[in-house]
Simulated scan of single mutants.
Amino acid sequence: MAIKILENALLMTPTIFFVHQMDIRPEEEVEMRKHPLHIYFICRTPKIFLDNSLTVIKRDTIDFVFYSNVKGKRKDYPITTVNNPLNPIGSIDCDYPYSIIKFYAPDGNWVGEGKANLIYHSLCNQQNIIPQILNMEVLYIGQAFGTDGKRITIDRLKTHEKSIAIYDTTQRYFPDYEIWFTSMSVEPTIMSSFMFPPGSLSETDMDDFKKNGLKCVYPEDIPEEEQITAAEAALIRYFDTKEYNKQFLDFPKESKRFKKCYELDLNSIGIQFNTFDSIAMRFFSKSVSPSAIHAKTYFLHEGTERQDMFWMLNDKD
């Protein structure tokens, strides 16, 4: 009887996040190209506006009133921040459609501007608040890799047919919402586990084990493109983005693009990520509740006598 002593799993972890829209600033693009951003989400959130008529600028503080208008029902999100005494704000403009905020010094000089959505997020982040109105609904998950990983997400998104379709659908059916992209880098980890209870192996089993040794797997054993595809597939299956994604909905059954993972006899492929400290946003879908922490593993050997390394965790789902 063959004994499977050591099991290995590939765990893909998004580590660097950029939240952006289609119109990326040149300096932002320069920064993004420093990182291997090969995975992206296309997301949707309610539009955020600023009611500048209610803005109150004081010497020490600024009182903002942001708001959403989903299905014609206005909801206010007031927030107060410090008016920096070294670089104070003297006035604020926010003309129709009330989504671009411009800041001016007391002498009238322009000092900066930004989207109401991102400014509200930044102000909340300063106060360790993750507002529910900015929860990101994941609609589509994709990858950009190209030859030797030279292509990143923003190259793919410039001519992406899915983003155009999602923009069109949102404009027609969800006019109170807007589209965002989350570009991310992912890193591989190999998790290993001894899969036998103490005392369950006979002396002969132990002799065979010592003779054959351990078959260790390392991240570099798996081609980077296959790692990226594994991350994409696991995320699609997890968020169940079937409205726009058509591949990998039954992952890991589509095995031909994970050839090396099967050759290395991996036990499972999984994803995990935490956005509390990075971008302070929650992600969700129609199948997954809003959270800043997401994790899931997928067993590669259904229908066999092999034991899932993560059965105790997955049985809770």
Rank of each mutant, 00 (worst) to 15 (best):
Y218R: 12
K102Y: 05
P14A: 03
S287T: 15
D207W: 06
T13S: 09
P26E: 08
A234Y: 01
G72C: 02
K162A: 10
F248W: 15
K58G: 14
K58A: 13
I101P: 01
L201Y: 02
I141H: 10
E203N: 14
G72Y: 01
I130M: 15
S285W: 09
M206W: 11
N212S: 07
D168K: 14
E254R: 14
P188C: 11
D168G: 04
F251R: 08
W180V: 04
I57C: 10
K259M: 09
Y244F: 15
P188Q: 12
L201I: 01
R33H: 07
E302G: 01
M184W: 01
Q307E: 10
Y262G: 04
F258E: 08
Y173K: 15
Y120W: 05
T229R: 15
P14M: 04
D168T: 14
G114P: 01
T159N: 11
E29V: 11
F103A: 06
S289P: 00
A233V: 01
P97F: 03
Y120H: 09
M312V: 10
D176N: 14
K162C: 04
V217T: 11
E31T: 10
S193M: 10
L157M: 14
C124E: 08
I164C: 02
L50V: 12
P106D: 14
I179M: 12
F18N: 08
F194Y: 03
R306A: 09
P223I: 11
N109T: 15
F239I: 10
D107R: 09
M184I: 11
E254C: 04
S200C: 02
D95S: 06
W180F: 12
E243H: 14
M136H: 13
A280V: 03
Y67S: 07
E31P: 01
I92H: 04
Y218H: 13
Y77G: 07
N245F: 06
W311C: 06
T45M: 06
D60M: 15
P46V: 05
T147N: 08
Y120I: 10
S99K: 15
V111Q: 15
I190D: 02
P219H: 11
W110G: 07
D207C: 09
D221V: 15
N128I: 06
Q132C: 10
M136V: 01
E113T: 12
P106Y: 07
K210M: 13
